[in-house]
Amino acid sequence: MPRFSKQRLDPVEPPYDAETAAALEALGPPIALFGVLARRPERARAVHGWGSYYLSRRSAMTLRQRELVIDRTTARCGAGYEFGVHVAVFAGKVGLDSAQVASLASGGPDDPCWEDPADRAVLRAVDALYDGDDLSDELWAELVRAVGEEGAIDLLLVCGWYHAVSYVARVLRLPDEPGTKGFATTIR
């Protein structure tokens, strides 16, 4: 995966005014991405309101399926920063082993580590969306069998949302967060 030049924009730094502090608290842990978004607290609140609550806490997909979507999307978009954050926080929680993490970064849904047909269907859908911005009728049917109709809609939203997040993280050249390894987590 590519290595980038230095970070392009600095996140807000303490001391924070009350509006910025509230926006940062709503977004979550004090990582660089959230600090950059909070340079304009109204933007941070909008991002939190659109993507955060429903897509992370109320989705019709399982937590594992959601993380497969996020990890594969950020990997395909070359956003090592966001990939590393999610792998560090969620890989263990959702039962991803090192072969699966490596496959998410640089393999494919037909790699031997993906035994569950639902995992493969989710990954195939993410790859098809990345490659062609659409799903064939056959792939749509496979996805609905794996995650249900509501889960399929949520997959589209999560995939699109993390495509946007990947643009931000990649273009801003955000360095890996402490305790994360970006794409270095995939060394076999």
Rank of each mutant, 00 (worst) to 15 (best):
residue 162 Y to L: 13
residue 24 L to P: 06
residue 9 L to Y: 13
residue 166 S to Q: 10
residue 153 I to K: 10
residue 107 G to D: 04
residue 128 A to D: 13
residue 171 V to K: 06
residue 46 A to Q: 10
residue 178 P to M: 08
residue 85 V to S: 08
residue 125 A to Y: 03
residue 19 E to A: 14
residue 91 A to V: 05
residue 46 A to C: 02
residue 57 R to G: 13
residue 59 S to Q: 09
residue 96 L to A: 03
residue 96 L to T: 03
residue 152 A to K: 05
residue 28 G to K: 07
residue 127 D to F: 09
residue 54 Y to C: 02
residue 6 K to L: 13
residue 83 F to K: 03
residue 57 R to Q: 13
residue 173 R to S: 13
residue 53 Y to F: 09
residue 156 L to Q: 06
residue 113 C to K: 05
residue 120 R to Q: 15
residue 174 L to G: 08
residue 90 F to S: 02
residue 37 L to P: 01
residue 156 L to R: 06
residue 31 I to E: 08
residue 178 P to G: 07
residue 96 L to G: 02
residue 140 W to Y: 11
residue 149 E to N: 00
residue 179 G to Q: 11
residue 112 P to T: 03
residue 111 D to Q: 00
residue 32 A to Y: 14
residue 7 Q to L: 12
residue 86 H to K: 10
residue 8 R to G: 01
residue 38 A to S: 15
residue 164 A to Y: 14
residue 91 A to Y: 05
residue 41 P to W: 10
residue 47 V to G: 01
residue 106 S to N: 09
residue 131 D to W: 02
residue 152 A to I: 06
residue 68 L to Y: 12
residue 186 T to S: 14
residue 171 V to R: 10
residue 111 D to R: 03
residue 137 D to C: 02
residue 72 R to Y: 08
residue 109 P to A: 08
residue 137 D to N: 04
residue 62 T to K: 05
residue 135 L to T: 00
residue 45 R to W: 06
residue 150 E to D: 14
residue 2 P to S: 09
residue 66 R to M: 04
residue 136 S to N: 05
residue 176 D to Y: 15
residue 70 I to R: 10
residue 152 A to P: 06
residue 83 F to A: 02
residue 18 A to I: 01
residue 89 V to K: 08
residue 133 D to G: 14
residue 169 A to R: 04
residue 10 D to S: 14
residue 13 E to R: 15
residue 155 L to I: 07
residue 26 A to V: 01
residue 183 F to V: 03
residue 87 V to A: 10
residue 150 E to L: 09
residue 53 Y to H: 12
residue 73 T to E: 09
residue 88 A to H: 12
residue 169 A to H: 02
residue 75 A to P: 03
residue 14 P to E: 12
residue 41 P to K: 11
residue 5 S to T: 15
residue 27 L to S: 09
residue 1 M to R: 08
residue 142 E to C: 00
residue 178 P to I: 08
residue 111 D to W: 00
residue 62 T to A: 03
residue 64 R to P: 01
residue 132 G to P: 00
residue 135 L to V: 02
residue 80 G to E: 07
residue 60 A to T: 01
residue 3 R to H: 14
residue 122 V to Y: 07
residue 11 P to Y: 05
residue 185 T to E: 14
residue 4 F to R: 15
residue 149 E to L: 07
residue 42 E to K: 10
residue 142 E to Y: 01
residue 182 G to N: 11
residue 135 L to F: 07
residue 56 S to K: 12
residue 56 S to T: 14
residue 69 V to E: 07
residue 116 D to I: 07
residue 153 I to Q: 09
residue 103 S to D: 10
residue 74 T to A: 15
